[in-house]
Design a binder for these strands. Sequence first.
DNA 1: CCCCCCATGTAACATGTTACATGATTGA
DNA 2: TCAATCATGTAACATGTTACATGGGGGG
Lengths: 176, 176
Amino acid sequence: MYTPTTLGYAILGLLFKSKTGYQVRKIFETTPLGEFSSSPGSIYPALNRLLSENLITKEINSTNNKNEFVITKRGISIVKDWCNRPLTLDDVKNKFGEVMLKFVLMEQLSDRDTINLFLFSLKENLSVYKAELDNYLSNNRTDLNLHSRLALQQGIEVCNANYNWALNTLNKYILN
Amino acid sequence: MYTPTTLGYAILGLLFKSKTGYQVRKIFETTPLGEFSSSPGSIYPALNRLLSENLITKEINSTNNKNEFVITKRGISIVKDWCNRPLTLDDVKNKFGEVMLKFVLMEQLSDRDTINLFLFSLKENLSVYKAELDNYLSNNRTDLNLHSRLALQQGIEVCNANYNWALNTLNKYILN
DNA sequence: CCCCCCATGTAACATGTTACATGATTGA
DNA sequence: TCAATCATGTAACATGTTACATGGGGGG
Protein backbone atom coordinates (compact mmCIF):
# COMPACT_ATOMS: atom_id res chain seq x y z
CA MET A 1 0.00 0.00 0.00
CA TYR A 2 1.14 3.49 -0.83
CA THR A 3 2.52 5.78 1.89
CA PRO A 4 3.14 9.44 1.18
CA THR A 5 6.50 10.97 2.06
CA THR A 6 6.73 13.76 4.61
CA LEU A 7 6.61 16.24 1.76
CA GLY A 8 3.45 14.49 0.57
CA TYR A 9 1.77 14.92 3.95
CA ALA A 10 2.79 18.58 4.05
CA ILE A 11 1.23 19.11 0.63
CA LEU A 12 -1.92 17.28 1.67
CA GLY A 13 -2.13 19.63 4.63
CA LEU A 14 -1.97 22.65 2.37
CA LEU A 15 -4.63 21.26 0.07
CA PHE A 16 -7.37 21.37 2.66
CA LYS A 17 -7.91 24.62 0.79
CA SER A 18 -7.52 24.26 -2.97
CA LYS A 19 -4.37 25.63 -4.54
CA THR A 20 -2.39 25.49 -7.77
CA GLY A 21 0.92 23.68 -7.81
CA TYR A 22 2.67 27.00 -8.08
CA GLN A 23 0.98 28.32 -4.96
CA VAL A 24 2.12 25.23 -3.09
CA ARG A 25 5.66 25.83 -4.24
CA LYS A 26 5.57 29.46 -3.16
CA ILE A 27 4.39 28.55 0.31
CA PHE A 28 7.31 26.19 0.81
CA GLU A 29 9.61 28.80 -0.65
CA THR A 30 8.54 31.80 1.37
CA THR A 31 7.09 30.75 4.70
CA PRO A 32 8.95 29.36 7.71
CA LEU A 33 6.34 26.64 8.17
CA GLY A 34 7.57 23.64 6.33
CA GLU A 35 11.25 23.51 5.62
CA PHE A 36 10.67 21.65 2.39
CA SER A 37 12.13 21.57 -1.08
CA SER A 38 9.90 23.88 -3.17
CA SER A 39 11.75 23.08 -6.38
CA PRO A 40 9.51 22.16 -9.33
CA GLY A 41 11.36 18.88 -9.61
CA SER A 42 10.05 17.80 -6.24
CA ILE A 43 6.62 19.46 -6.01
CA TYR A 44 5.08 18.51 -9.35
CA PRO A 45 6.07 14.85 -9.21
CA ALA A 46 4.79 14.73 -5.63
CA LEU A 47 1.46 16.24 -6.70
CA ASN A 48 1.19 13.70 -9.50
CA ARG A 49 1.85 10.85 -7.11
CA LEU A 50 -0.88 12.07 -4.76
CA LEU A 51 -3.17 12.48 -7.75
CA SER A 52 -2.61 8.98 -9.06
CA GLU A 53 -3.33 7.58 -5.59
CA ASN A 54 -6.56 9.59 -5.43
CA LEU A 55 -5.46 11.48 -2.34
CA ILE A 56 -6.06 14.77 -4.17
CA THR A 57 -8.05 15.84 -7.24
CA LYS A 58 -7.28 18.37 -9.95
CA GLU A 59 -10.10 20.68 -10.96
CA ILE A 60 -10.48 23.87 -12.91
CA ASN A 61 -11.49 26.78 -10.71
CA SER A 62 -14.49 28.30 -12.54
CA THR A 63 -13.75 31.88 -11.49
CA ASN A 64 -10.11 32.23 -12.53
CA ASN A 65 -9.89 29.26 -14.88
CA LYS A 66 -6.82 27.78 -13.22
CA ASN A 67 -6.00 24.21 -12.38
CA GLU A 68 -6.30 23.68 -8.67
CA PHE A 69 -5.72 20.70 -6.41
CA VAL A 70 -7.81 19.75 -3.38
CA ILE A 71 -7.53 16.92 -0.90
CA THR A 72 -10.04 14.04 -1.24
CA LYS A 73 -11.88 12.13 1.47
CA ARG A 74 -9.41 9.34 1.00
CA GLY A 75 -6.58 11.85 1.39
CA ILE A 76 -8.06 13.21 4.60
CA SER A 77 -8.40 9.74 6.00
CA ILE A 78 -4.76 8.93 5.18
CA VAL A 79 -3.54 12.12 6.85
CA LYS A 80 -5.69 11.45 9.88
CA ASP A 81 -4.32 7.93 10.26
CA TRP A 82 -0.81 9.28 10.05
CA CYS A 83 -1.42 11.92 12.70
CA ASN A 84 -3.06 9.50 15.09
CA ARG A 85 -0.33 6.89 14.93
CA PRO A 86 1.27 6.74 18.39
CA LEU A 87 4.43 8.81 18.76
CA THR A 88 7.64 6.85 19.18
CA LEU A 89 10.93 7.78 20.76
CA ASP A 90 12.46 7.60 17.31
CA ASP A 91 10.00 10.23 16.02
CA VAL A 92 11.08 12.56 18.80
CA LYS A 93 14.78 11.86 18.34
CA ASN A 94 15.12 11.97 14.60
CA LYS A 95 11.93 13.30 13.05
CA PHE A 96 10.88 16.27 15.09
CA GLY A 97 9.86 18.14 11.95
CA GLU A 98 7.31 15.43 11.20
CA VAL A 99 6.01 15.59 14.75
CA MET A 100 5.39 19.32 14.44
CA LEU A 101 3.77 18.86 11.04
CA LYS A 102 1.40 16.35 12.58
CA PHE A 103 0.59 18.79 15.35
CA VAL A 104 -0.34 21.47 12.81
CA LEU A 105 -2.45 19.09 10.75
CA MET A 106 -4.26 17.75 13.80
CA GLU A 107 -5.99 21.04 14.40
CA GLN A 108 -8.39 20.37 11.56
CA LEU A 109 -8.61 16.62 12.07
CA SER A 110 -8.67 15.63 15.69
CA ASP A 111 -10.67 16.41 18.78
CA ARG A 112 -9.39 17.96 21.95
CA ASP A 113 -8.76 14.67 23.72
CA THR A 114 -6.66 13.31 20.90
CA ILE A 115 -4.61 16.48 20.80
CA ASN A 116 -4.14 16.39 24.55
CA LEU A 117 -2.98 12.82 24.33
CA PHE A 118 -0.61 13.69 21.52
CA LEU A 119 0.97 16.51 23.52
CA PHE A 120 1.17 14.39 26.62
CA SER A 121 2.90 11.59 24.76
CA LEU A 122 5.25 14.10 23.15
CA LYS A 123 6.15 15.47 26.56
CA GLU A 124 6.77 11.98 27.93
CA ASN A 125 8.96 10.97 25.02
CA LEU A 126 10.96 14.17 25.28
CA SER A 127 11.46 13.46 28.94
CA VAL A 128 12.84 10.01 28.16
CA TYR A 129 15.04 11.40 25.43
CA LYS A 130 16.40 14.09 27.72
CA ALA A 131 17.21 11.48 30.36
CA GLU A 132 19.06 9.42 27.76
CA LEU A 133 21.15 12.38 26.69
CA ASP A 134 21.91 13.38 30.27
CA ASN A 135 22.94 9.84 31.05
CA TYR A 136 25.13 9.55 28.01
CA LEU A 137 26.85 12.79 28.91
CA SER A 138 27.60 11.82 32.49
CA ASN A 139 28.70 8.29 31.61
CA ASN A 140 31.07 9.44 28.89
CA ARG A 141 32.23 12.78 30.18
CA THR A 142 35.85 11.69 30.30
CA ASP A 143 35.93 9.94 26.92
CA LEU A 144 34.32 12.75 24.95
CA ASN A 145 36.39 15.65 23.77
CA LEU A 146 35.36 19.23 24.46
CA HIS A 147 33.35 19.95 21.33
CA SER A 148 31.48 16.67 21.49
CA ARG A 149 30.43 17.49 25.04
CA LEU A 150 29.34 20.96 23.99
CA ALA A 151 27.41 19.58 21.03
CA LEU A 152 25.69 17.12 23.33
CA GLN A 153 24.87 20.02 25.61
CA GLN A 154 23.25 21.78 22.66
CA GLY A 155 21.11 18.72 22.01
CA ILE A 156 20.02 18.65 25.63
CA GLU A 157 19.08 22.30 25.58
CA VAL A 158 16.98 21.91 22.45
CA CYS A 159 15.35 18.92 24.07
CA ASN A 160 14.55 21.03 27.12
CA ALA A 161 13.14 23.83 24.99
CA ASN A 162 10.88 21.35 23.25
CA TYR A 163 9.84 19.79 26.51
CA ASN A 164 8.87 23.17 27.93
CA TRP A 165 7.00 24.03 24.77
CA ALA A 166 5.03 20.78 24.95
CA LEU A 167 4.27 21.36 28.63
CA ASN A 168 3.09 24.93 28.10
CA THR A 169 1.02 24.00 25.09
CA LEU A 170 -0.56 21.16 26.99
CA ASN A 171 -1.47 23.53 29.82
CA LYS A 172 -3.08 25.93 27.37
CA TYR A 173 -5.19 23.05 26.09
CA ILE A 174 -6.20 21.78 29.49
CA LEU A 175 -7.22 25.27 30.59
CA ASN A 176 -9.32 25.36 27.43
CA MET B 1 34.82 17.77 -8.45
CA TYR B 2 33.53 15.35 -5.86
CA THR B 3 31.78 16.57 -2.71
CA PRO B 4 31.01 14.20 0.15
CA THR B 5 27.51 14.06 1.59
CA THR B 6 26.87 14.98 5.20
CA LEU B 7 27.15 11.31 6.07
CA GLY B 8 30.48 11.29 4.27
CA TYR B 9 31.79 14.16 6.38
CA ALA B 10 30.57 12.47 9.54
CA ILE B 11 32.43 9.30 8.59
CA LEU B 12 35.56 11.27 7.75
CA GLY B 13 35.35 12.81 11.20
CA LEU B 14 35.25 9.39 12.82
CA LEU B 15 38.20 8.17 10.78
CA PHE B 16 40.66 10.59 12.33
CA LYS B 17 41.20 7.46 14.39
CA SER B 18 41.21 4.28 12.30
CA LYS B 19 38.15 2.06 12.48
CA THR B 20 36.52 -0.84 10.69
CA GLY B 21 33.34 -0.25 8.75
CA TYR B 22 31.44 -2.13 11.38
CA GLN B 23 32.75 0.11 14.15
CA VAL B 24 31.59 3.12 12.19
CA ARG B 25 28.16 1.60 11.86
CA LYS B 26 27.95 0.86 15.56
CA ILE B 27 28.83 4.44 16.47
CA PHE B 28 25.99 5.79 14.34
CA GLU B 29 23.71 3.15 15.75
CA THR B 30 24.39 3.60 19.43
CA THR B 31 25.56 7.13 20.17
CA PRO B 32 23.47 10.31 20.15
CA LEU B 33 26.21 12.12 18.26
CA GLY B 34 25.31 11.86 14.65
CA GLU B 35 21.77 11.04 13.81
CA PHE B 36 22.75 9.10 10.75
CA SER B 37 21.64 6.00 8.96
CA SER B 38 23.95 3.22 10.23
CA SER B 39 22.47 0.62 7.87
CA PRO B 40 25.03 -1.39 5.92
CA GLY B 41 23.38 -0.21 2.72
CA SER B 42 24.43 3.34 3.43
CA ILE B 43 27.71 2.97 5.32
CA TYR B 44 29.61 0.56 3.10
CA PRO B 45 28.81 2.33 -0.17
CA ALA B 46 29.75 5.62 1.51
CA LEU B 47 33.07 4.17 2.66
CA ASN B 48 33.76 2.91 -0.84
CA ARG B 49 33.03 6.32 -2.33
CA LEU B 50 35.45 7.99 0.09
CA LEU B 51 37.98 5.29 -0.70
CA SER B 52 37.76 5.74 -4.45
CA GLU B 53 38.21 9.49 -4.01
CA ASN B 54 41.30 8.88 -1.86
CA LEU B 55 39.81 10.67 1.12
CA ILE B 56 40.39 7.56 3.24
CA THR B 57 42.61 4.47 2.94
CA LYS B 58 42.00 0.86 3.86
CA GLU B 59 44.75 -0.94 5.68
CA ILE B 60 45.17 -4.11 7.64
CA ASN B 61 45.80 -3.49 11.31
CA SER B 62 48.88 -5.62 12.08
CA THR B 63 47.85 -6.41 15.65
CA ASN B 64 44.31 -7.71 15.16
CA ASN B 65 44.49 -8.43 11.42
CA LYS B 66 41.34 -6.47 10.59
CA ASN B 67 40.64 -4.08 7.75
CA GLU B 68 40.58 -0.55 9.04
CA PHE B 69 39.95 2.80 7.40
CA VAL B 70 41.79 6.04 8.16
CA ILE B 71 41.42 9.54 6.78
CA THR B 72 44.11 10.71 4.33
CA LYS B 73 45.78 14.12 4.09
CA ARG B 74 43.51 14.87 1.17
CA GLY B 75 40.53 13.86 3.31
CA ILE B 76 41.61 16.12 6.13
CA SER B 77 42.00 19.02 3.74
CA ILE B 78 38.52 18.45 2.30
CA VAL B 79 36.95 18.37 5.77
CA LYS B 80 38.84 21.47 6.79
CA ASP B 81 37.64 23.40 3.74
CA TRP B 82 34.09 22.35 4.49
CA CYS B 83 34.30 23.47 8.11
CA ASN B 84 35.84 26.81 7.24
CA ARG B 85 33.30 27.74 4.60
CA PRO B 86 31.36 30.77 5.93
CA LEU B 87 28.08 29.93 7.60
CA THR B 88 24.97 31.03 5.76
CA LEU B 89 21.50 31.80 6.98
CA ASP B 90 20.33 28.74 5.08
CA ASP B 91 22.73 26.54 7.04
CA VAL B 92 21.25 27.81 10.28
CA LYS B 93 17.65 27.53 9.08
CA ASN B 94 17.69 24.16 7.42
CA LYS B 95 20.93 22.37 8.18
CA PHE B 96 21.61 22.81 11.84
CA GLY B 97 22.80 19.23 12.13
CA GLU B 98 25.56 19.99 9.64
CA VAL B 99 26.50 23.12 11.57
CA MET B 100 26.93 21.14 14.78
CA LEU B 101 28.91 18.45 12.95
CA LYS B 102 31.25 21.13 11.67
CA PHE B 103 31.63 22.46 15.18
CA VAL B 104 32.65 19.03 16.46
CA LEU B 105 35.10 18.45 13.61
CA MET B 106 36.67 21.89 14.02
CA GLU B 107 38.13 20.97 17.36
CA GLN B 108 40.85 18.91 15.71
CA LEU B 109 41.23 21.13 12.64
CA SER B 110 41.00 24.82 13.45
CA ASP B 111 42.66 27.29 15.76
CA ARG B 112 40.98 29.25 18.49
CA ASP B 113 40.37 32.34 16.36
CA THR B 114 38.63 30.37 13.65
CA ILE B 115 36.42 28.65 16.19
CA ASN B 116 35.59 31.98 17.80
CA LEU B 117 34.67 33.40 14.44
CA PHE B 118 32.53 30.38 13.68
CA LEU B 119 30.59 30.71 16.93
CA PHE B 120 30.23 34.43 16.49
CA SER B 121 28.85 34.00 12.99
CA LEU B 122 26.53 31.27 14.23
CA LYS B 123 25.22 33.58 16.92
CA GLU B 124 24.68 36.39 14.42
CA ASN B 125 22.84 34.15 11.97
CA LEU B 126 20.66 32.77 14.71
CA SER B 127 19.84 36.30 15.74
CA VAL B 128 18.75 37.16 12.19
CA TYR B 129 16.74 33.96 11.95
CA LYS B 130 15.02 34.64 15.24
CA ALA B 131 14.10 38.15 14.09
CA GLU B 132 12.63 36.71 10.89
CA LEU B 133 10.50 34.26 12.81
CA ASP B 134 9.33 36.93 15.28
CA ASN B 135 8.45 39.20 12.41
CA TYR B 136 6.59 36.53 10.54
CA LEU B 137 4.59 35.70 13.64
CA SER B 138 3.56 39.27 14.38
CA ASN B 139 2.76 40.09 10.75
CA ASN B 140 0.62 37.00 10.28
CA ARG B 141 -0.85 36.53 13.71
CA THR B 142 -4.41 36.94 12.45
CA ASP B 143 -4.05 34.77 9.32
CA LEU B 144 -2.44 31.82 11.05
CA ASN B 145 -4.53 29.29 12.87
CA LEU B 146 -3.79 28.26 16.43
CA HIS B 147 -1.56 25.29 15.80
CA SER B 148 0.48 27.08 13.17
CA ARG B 149 1.14 29.87 15.63
CA LEU B 150 2.11 27.38 18.32
CA ALA B 151 4.41 25.54 15.92
CA LEU B 152 6.04 28.82 14.99
CA GLN B 153 6.47 29.52 18.67
CA GLN B 154 8.24 26.18 19.02
CA GLY B 155 10.62 27.18 16.22
CA ILE B 156 11.36 30.45 17.95
CA GLU B 157 12.09 28.75 21.23
CA VAL B 158 14.49 26.29 19.65
CA CYS B 159 16.13 29.23 17.93
CA ASN B 160 16.51 30.95 21.28
CA ALA B 161 17.95 27.85 22.89
CA ASN B 162 20.51 27.61 20.11
CA TYR B 163 21.32 31.29 20.37
CA ASN B 164 21.96 31.00 24.08
CA TRP B 165 24.06 27.93 23.55
CA ALA B 166 26.20 29.73 20.97
CA LEU B 167 26.55 32.74 23.25
CA ASN B 168 27.57 30.68 26.27
CA THR B 169 29.97 28.58 24.25
CA LEU B 170 31.52 31.69 22.79
CA ASN B 171 32.01 33.12 26.27
CA LYS B 172 33.71 29.92 27.40
CA TYR B 173 36.09 30.28 24.48
CA ILE B 174 36.84 33.92 25.04
CA LEU B 175 37.53 33.30 28.72
CA ASN B 176 39.87 30.57 27.59
C1' DC C 1 9.50 45.48 -26.60
C1' DC C 2 11.67 43.20 -22.98
C1' DC C 3 12.00 41.37 -18.56
C1' DC C 4 10.04 39.32 -14.73
C1' DC C 5 6.94 36.38 -12.67
C1' DC C 6 3.35 32.83 -13.28
C1' DA C 7 3.07 27.98 -14.26
C1' DT C 8 4.40 23.28 -15.35
C1' DG C 9 7.07 19.95 -16.59
C1' DT C 10 11.09 16.37 -17.55
C1' DA C 11 15.64 13.99 -17.56
C1' DA C 12 19.97 12.65 -15.40
C1' DC C 13 21.89 11.79 -11.28
C1' DA C 14 23.36 10.55 -6.43
C1' DT C 15 21.93 8.97 -2.44
C1' DG C 16 19.55 6.61 1.21
C1' DT C 17 16.13 2.76 2.56
C1' DT C 18 14.83 -1.84 2.82
C1' DA C 19 15.64 -6.31 2.32
C1' DC C 20 18.34 -10.08 1.31
C1' DA C 21 22.56 -12.72 1.59
C1' DT C 22 26.79 -14.70 3.36
C1' DG C 23 30.36 -16.27 6.43
C1' DA C 24 33.43 -15.93 10.68
C1' DT C 25 33.88 -15.77 15.55
C1' DT C 26 32.61 -16.21 20.27
C1' DG C 27 30.40 -17.15 24.49
C1' DA C 28 26.76 -19.98 26.88
C1' DT D 1 26.35 -26.77 19.39
C1' DC D 2 23.51 -22.96 18.95
C1' DA D 3 22.57 -18.30 19.08
C1' DA D 4 24.23 -13.83 18.93
C1' DT D 5 27.26 -10.65 17.29
C1' DC D 6 30.98 -9.35 14.13
C1' DA D 7 31.62 -8.06 9.42
C1' DT D 8 30.63 -6.92 4.67
C1' DG D 9 28.25 -6.65 0.87
C1' DT D 10 24.50 -6.15 -3.12
C1' DA D 11 20.07 -5.26 -5.60
C1' DA D 12 15.68 -2.93 -6.21
C1' DC D 13 13.44 1.03 -5.26
C1' DA D 14 11.59 5.81 -4.25
C1' DT D 15 12.74 10.15 -3.74
C1' DG D 16 14.91 14.58 -3.92
C1' DT D 17 18.43 17.75 -6.39
C1' DT D 18 19.95 20.16 -10.25
C1' DA D 19 19.44 21.74 -14.50
C1' DC D 20 17.09 22.41 -18.54
C1' DA D 21 13.00 23.64 -21.15
C1' DT D 22 8.73 25.84 -22.51
C1' DG D 23 5.07 29.22 -22.89
C1' DG D 24 1.75 32.94 -21.30
C1' DG D 25 0.73 37.41 -19.23
C1' DG D 26 1.52 41.92 -17.20
C1' DG D 27 4.00 46.08 -16.30
C1' DG D 28 7.63 49.49 -17.25
